[in-house]
Amino acid sequence: MPVTVTRTTITTTSSSSTIVGSPRALTQPLGLLRLLQLVSTCIAFSLVASVGAYTGPMGHWSMFTWCFCFAVTLVILLVELFGLQARFPLSWRNFPITYACYAALFCLTSSIIYPTTYVQFLSHGRSRDHAIAATTFSCVACLAYATEVAWTRARPGEITGYMATVPGLLKVLETFVACIIFVFISNPYLYQHASALECCVAVYAICFILAAVAILLNLGDCTNVLPISFPSFLSGLALLSVVLYAIALVLWPLYQFNEKYHGQPRRSGDPGCATRHTHDVCSWDRRLAVSVLTGINLLAYLADLAYSARLVFVKV
């Protein structure tokens, strides 16, 4: 009976070039890059914490981002320093680049949200200066994480984990954008007045869960537990998500901004947007943000579908 050989990935992560279990691992280019990530996130949350400049949901989000990124980066450095990759509970071929991609997106979001929704409302003084400096170090961390992703991503002819490939990185983007959408629609008032909008929320949840499952299967090296081949699962997931997000891209703006469907076409018509509020985003802006993010995720799923349809996997 003929055996079908499947291809899983295309490149080796640069982290394999570091010397396992040796202090010299920190002097390698990737080790130095992670030290920069560690220092920049540490300085960012230390500056903010020293003056308490993280009031409100956006401030707490930024503080969580910097603390979380610092903690996980420290764990990665310790694992590589003491050569514990084999004992790590997750696939070391997939975990570092998956985390680096998430961390880059987290820091990018904080570098945008924190100054626009918090820093600009601070009065001139020590707190504002610390907040501005923290934003600067957040940008440095974002660049450092993005550099790691570019450094360790898959290249033709090399073998690595699925998460280092373009479809794998797109999965990270898709789940991250979905999480931001959930933040903006955290108030049920935005969608409970129309069944079509509730369907959109269901679309966001279903696609997020499926993409998260794909990521977790790779991180746990459990892609063989599926009743179908993993490449078929990825292609089906991408196709289903494209169809669902295309529907959401039509329904969400239609029912949010069209007066015929009790929508609000103008921002000036939203009383909550009439005055500037610190640490908050008004309902009309939330609706617009979700519309834009829906379009971004649709493009990501379209690219994912194109790559997944032609990517051949090798089972290592």
Rank of each mutant, 00 (worst) to 15 (best):
V5K: 12
I10C: 06
T12C: 06
T12L: 06
T12H: 04
T13E: 12
S16Y: 07
S17W: 01
S22C: 07
R34V: 00
L35Q: 10
S40R: 05
S40N: 05
A44E: 10
A44G: 09
S46Q: 03
V51W: 06
A53K: 03
T55L: 04
S62W: 02
T73Y: 09
E80A: 04
L81S: 13
G83E: 09
Q85E: 15
A86Q: 14
F88W: 07
P89E: 08
F106Q: 08
F106I: 01
C107W: 01
S111L: 02
T117V: 07
L122A: 11
S123I: 00
H124N: 13
S127D: 11
F137I: 03
C139E: 11
A141L: 01
C142S: 13
Y145V: 02
T152D: 15
P167L: 03
T175Y: 05
V177R: 06
A178R: 02
F184S: 12
I185Q: 08
Y189K: 15
S195E: 11
A196C: 05
E198D: 11
Y204L: 05
I206C: 13
C207Y: 00
F208I: 00
I209Y: 04
I209K: 06
I209R: 04
L210V: 11
A212S: 15
V213M: 09
L216D: 10
L219M: 05
D221Q: 10
S229K: 06
L234W: 01
L240K: 10
L244S: 10
W252N: 10
P253N: 04
N258D: 14
E259Y: 07
K260T: 14
G272T: 00
C273H: 06
C273Q: 10
H279S: 12
D285P: 00
R287P: 01
L293H: 04
A306I: 04
F313Q: 15
V316N: 15
